[in-house]
Design a protein around this nucleic acid. Structure first.
Length: 451
RNA sequence: GGAGAGGUGGGUGAGUGGCUGAAACCAGUUCCCUGCUAAGGAACCGUACGUUAAUUCGUACCGAGGGUUCGAAUCCCUCCCUCUCCGCCA
């Protein structure tokens, strides 16, 4: 695995050499408990190996710092002697061997730090208490169901067929010509509804839920991807641009607006009265879908490029679990306003994302698939991302800055919302009703019909 | 793309080899004084890691990396970024 140029810099900066993900103190002081917690999500932490490395690290760091201290002291003495006109030759002779010893110690320390780094790089976040233990999505726990799947009274068509009949509203063939599989060209009223959905969601979050609207870059640098946890482990899920230079790291297309939005907090210390920060943005998302060959090949469900309205919150640690409930609720409101039946599940330990400590998925009812499909995922990342980003806050009565907590959630995935509307609002004659809240965004159109 | 300038603490901005983790000013915090306000005075005021009874001590950090040196914010090399002017362009 390539070492990230942005973080691993040189031996002298011990603290920057480690890409910290978990609180190092969790591993140093509570490693048994941490290992047990991680085991519930299927991650085996090699406790003995870690402890051995950590011990080495400590010894070497102390040794290195002692040597540096000696060098500094002696160099200072030389300066003073020189100033007062004394002969400094004997003093120089004394420090002769010091440099070599220091270099050795530094090199050894660097090696240990790099090994230690692997532990941090590959260790996922610790699940929050109360998150159900489980292996995969089958062990997720349903929290609630909202709405009732519509009784269409005829055999449901899927969104591909519906849109095809609506003046080629979704044109996958042309998209394949332009780009390849997993892309779409939208036409006419369908394209319009797609745009309307994003506008509606943004308006709702900004006007009713108190989010600050943000426009962000769609290409980001590798630091940002490390910050939110896509790198170093999940680089193959992303589209990368070519490096500008052989050594340089090219920019990457964002897989979600979570990356630019959350990284706004990177290397920043908020004052406590600035929190919580609530941001929303509508962006395209680009995903390589490596490893999902053959899955959801039909239709709009799994695309290399899709639009999403994202919500991100930056909050004080003690409020993050409440914030997760709130944020998930904001996503639910969109589904409710659109009249789309959904269910809410809490992900089990084994199904959660790498950086999350608790996640709710919202799954919308899709008549053609006769099942619920994910349309939003809302996660509390705890301090996991904040630690990597060095995103902190400080109040007047706090001695030191502390890490903030970060949360993100889709509110919602626009393409999948379009799918859900097409399928849930389809009528026997092939037309599709426009959900009431969307009508103003569709220039008053209440129904999409074949021309 | 061409030509220049520059990157120092929350901000402005000194600092060209040693006693500079860094002047000064502004902002901020605490206190004093003046019956409010305004003005004035004093102190404090970076982050990380290690260490400690301790805000005790140590180390590192002046865009990033490397080099020279006993010693680098300061000298050398490479890279990144920002700004200005010209050209081009949505």
């Amino acid at each position: 695995m390539p070492v990230p140029c942005c973080r691993v810099v040189c031996v002298v900066n011990y603290e920057r050499i480690v890409i910290v993900m978990l609180d190092p103190r969790l591993l140093r002081n509570n490693i048994e408990e941490t290992a047990a917690a991680l085991a519930t999500r299927g991650y085996q932490l090699d406790v003995d190996a870690y402890n051995a490395l950590e011990e080495k690290r400590k010894a070497l760091q102390v040794e290195t710092q002692d040597l540096q201290n000696e060098r500094n002291t002696r160099s200072k003495a030389i300066g003073m002697a020189k100033r007062s006109g004394e002969d400094i030759a004997p003093l120089l002779a004394q420090v002769e061997a010091l440099g070599g010893k220091l270099d050795e110690a530094k090199a050894a320390l660097e090696q240990v730090m790099l090994s230690l780094n692997i532990f941090y790089q590959e260790t996922p976040n610790v699940p929050a208490p109360g998150v159900p233990s489980g292996k995969d999505e089958d062990d997720n726990v349903e929290v609630l169901k909202w709405g009732t799947p519509p009784d269409l009274g005829f055999k449901a068509k899927d969104h591909v067929d519906i849109a095809q009949a609506l003046n080629k509203g979704l044109d996958f063939e042309t998209a394949a010509k332009l780009s390849g599989s997993r892309f779409v060209v939208m036409n006419g009223s369908i394209a319009r509804m797609h745009r309307a959905l994003a506008q509606f969601m943004l308006d709702c979050h900004t006007q009713e839920h108190g989010y600050h609207e943000v426009y962000v870059p769609y290409l980001v640098n590798s630091e940002s991807l490390y910050g939110t946890g896509q790198l170093p482990k999940f680089g193959e899920d992303l589209f990368h641009t070519k490096p500008a230079t052989e050594e340089g790291q090219g920019m990457s297309l964002i897989p979600t607006a979570e990356v630019p939005l959350t990284n706004i907090a990177r290397d920043h210390i908020f004052s406590s009265d600035e929190l919580p920060v609530k941001m929303t943005a509508h962006t395209p998302c680009f995903r390589s879908e490596a490893g999902s060959y053959g899955r959801d090949t039909r239709g709009l469900i799994r695309q290399h490029q899709f639009d999403k309205v994202e919500m991100v919150q930056l909050v004080a640690p003690e409020t993050s679990m409440d914030a997760l409930e709130e944020l998930t609720g904001h996503a639910e409101v969109i589904l409710q306003k659109l009249g789309l039946p959904y269910r809410k599940v809490v992900l089990c330990t084994g199904d959660m994302g790498f950086g999350a400590c608790k996640t709710y998925d919202l799954e919308v009812w899709l008549p053609a698939q006769d099942t619920y499909r994910e349309i939003s995922s809302c996660s509390n990342m705890g301090d996991f991302q904040a630690r990597r980003m060095q995103a902190r806050y400080k109040s007047k009565d706090m001695k030191k800055p502390e890490l903030i907590h970060t949360l993100n959630g889709s509110g919602l995935a626009v393409g999948r919302t379009l799918v859900a509307i097409l399928e849930n609002y389809q009528q026997q004659d092939g037309s599709v009703k426009v959900p009431e809240v969307l009508v103003p965004y569709m220039n008053g159109v209440t129904e999409i019909t074949p021309a």
